[in-house]
Design a protein around this nucleic acid. Structure first.
Lengths: 247, 247
DNA sequence: GTCACCGGGTGGCTGAGCCACTCAGGGAGT
DNA sequence: ACTCCCTGAGTGGCTCAGCCACCCGGTGAC
């Protein structure tokens, strides 16, 4: 048995990766046509069918736009791409991370404020539960996931499902690289303590307080994460085994 | 030549649609395994290869999670799905639209505030340009697209690219059904006039004013849109030809 | 000059088939 | 009895060769 226990990437996964890198790296420039599928497939040493699977994913991701009889065009993702591109952008360039965190802070504050107004009693109870789960987490990784659960619950408490999806999107963007961002959660009890004021304010129904508590919490967490990122090294690489955490 | 000039949906598109409807409609419940691919393909009357293309898209969208040797599982999209699901949710159920608008209002205000602080002179000039384009738009549809361009430019002016992607996501969510939401843009000059205070405040660098102007503008537009939606009928149906507007 | 046609190039889709993975059950060894 | 390995059935992953549908530019008939 090889030392690599994990890893497990399918051919299509690898192919998708390479194509994406070639696109984001500038080998294929936006606006231009990609080489014909038959040619591309030959170049990468795969069947056209397999190549099409990869292309199809990138098309859905918004990086490509193919038209029957014409060809496949590289799109300007900043112009038309959606937030679903963030996960792959974050793994490529840690500059995106700081921008993601900033938005997360703004939106997190918005969510906390709104949750304080709208949360139901049922949701208040659930909030305390998931906060407890953070404190009881066995290690940093578990704490981080439990923390995400708290934020999901806060989003749920706004009564607006779009906030929940948005929260998921932002998490999907940085959870794949969370290995490098574990710093704030090394001590689960401490992490829970930092998060507690936010939950408390929401449970008490105090929007102003919830907003500023969230702002403060997110800023602190953000700083810890980015600080832990800076000295050691970049966050890129192949942190992308699991396509998505299971449901 | 058949009377249907437009429409042009590929087999995979249709298949994706049907599968998605079957999932969101409850034929395939979250957590359960889908029937085997061979069986499914036979059921829908397509090849397994074609089916896999459709499944692959839904998997990437976060609705499915497939594992080699095990099967394909339906996921709980509210738990793990991202904002990229919004376009398809909005076309299925207009209840999502009101939630999307609310979030757009909150985030739009956030963006305006931040743009007022961060915009460069170059971006200020470009903002005036695209605002002019709204006033000069030939019809309601063009005005609506020009309006979207203004908001994209505002997002760009925040200096945070994540806001740009987020804006794209929200637009992608409701532009497909924009035919039913044309009301605020029937008179392009008027639409531009309503939008002008936001642009002005951002150009002048007044965050407070920009925020409240954006809030006010978005609320007004939102009300007009939803009002035009209510009496006539639902917004669902097959407004989804183009996979995405071209880049 | 205009227009219909056609051919080459492109992506869309098919069908059959083999490979790789997972799991459960049964039989050999202890 | 118990343990462990093997095996077979069922599933998704991937390939291959090929035909179909579409778009465009050129060419020849009118």
């Amino acid at each position: 048995m090889p030392p690599e226990i994990i890893a497990r990437q399918s051919v299509v996964d690898v192919l998708e990766h390479r194509l994406r890198d070639d696109i984001l790296g500038g080998t294929h420039v936006p606006g231009e046509l990609l080489p014909p599928e038959r040619e591309l497939a030959a170049g990468y040493g795969v069947t056209r069918t397999t190549l099409k699977h990869a292309l199809s994913r990138l098309e859905q991701a918004g990086l490509l736009s193919t038209r029957h009889g014409i060809g496949t065009r590289v799109r300007d993702f900043l112009r038309v791409g959606g937030a679903d591109l963030l996960p792959m952008l974050a793994t490529r360039d840690s500059g995106w991370l700081t921008e993601i965190f900033e938005v997360r802070r703004h939106i997190g504050a918005l969510i906390a404020r709104r949750a304080a107004v709208r949360r139901t009693d049922r949701q208040a109870a659930r909030l305390r539960e998931v906060l407890d789960a953070v404190a009881r987490a066995g290690d940093g990784d578990a704490a981080q996931l439990a923390d995400a659960e708290v934020h999901r619950e806060l989003a749920r408490a706004t009564g607006n499902r779009v906030y929940l999806l948005l929260t998921n999107t932002l998490f999907n963007a940085y959870l794949p690289v969370r290995g490098a961002l574990r710093a704030p959660f090394e001590d689960p009890a401490e992490a829970a303590a930092r998060l507690a004021p936010v939950v408390q304010a929401v449970v008490d129904g105090l929007p102003e307080q919830a907003e500023s508590a969230a702002e403060q919490y997110l800023r602190a967490t953000e700083e810890l994460m980015l600080a832990s990122l800076r000295p050691s090294g970049r966050a890129d690489g192949d942190h992308e085994r699991e396509r998505r955490h299971d449901g």
